[in-house]
């Protein structure tokens, strides 16, 4: 859900804006050529994903960024990247220990028997 909420560039823009400070729907809509209703729709998606919350006390109901689910996702993706970085370091080192298989030309299509 977090990922699908982030799949839209407008919603990512809204989150980036909210990372600087809370904002009203009107403020969030400013940079976009879209209606307040359209922006509200995006906010509903972000709210359902737990990525933003709306203030209740103030009449202008400021939108607030909820960083935790975003962090869980990015942490996982970063961990995945680190996993492959390590694996590929290991892979490169392993390749060096292996003798090259016989190869007559540089043509990848040369037939080999296994």
């Amino acid at each position: 859900m977090t990922l699908s909420a982030l799949a839209d560039p407008t919603r990512r823009g809204i989150l980036a804006r909210l990372a600087t400070a809370d904002a009203t729907v009107g403020e969030l809509a400013e940079p976009y050529d879209m209606s307040l209703a359209a922006v509200s729709k995006h906010l509903k998606v972000l709210e359902a994903a737990g990525l933003v919350s709306r203030g209740r006390e103030a009449q202008w109901r400021p939108v607030h960024l909820e960083a935790e689910p975003l962090q869980a996702v990015t942490e996982w993706l970063e961990e995945y990247r680190r996993f492959w970085d390590r694996s590929l370091d290991s892979f490169a080192a392993y390749l060096k220990t292996m003798p090259a298989p016989p190869r007559t030309t540089n043509k990848p299509k040369s037939k080999r028997h296994k």
């Binding site: 990922l3 982030l6 799949a7 990512r12 989150l15 980036a16 975003l70 962090q71 996702v73 990015t74 993706l77 970063e78 995945y80 990247r81 492959w84 970085d85 590929l88 892979f91 490169a92 390749l95 060096k96 292996m98 090259a100 298989p101 190869r103 990848p108 080999r112």
Partner: peptide, 22 residues
């Protein structure tokens, strides 16, 4: 962070000092 989850893909690339068959 948002570039890391952009379209929910991770792209990595490397050059190895070995021929493709190996």
């Amino acid at each position: 962070d948002s570039s890391a989850v952009d379209e929910a893909t991770i792209i990595m690339s490397r050059m190895f000092d070995a021929p493709i068959d190996k």
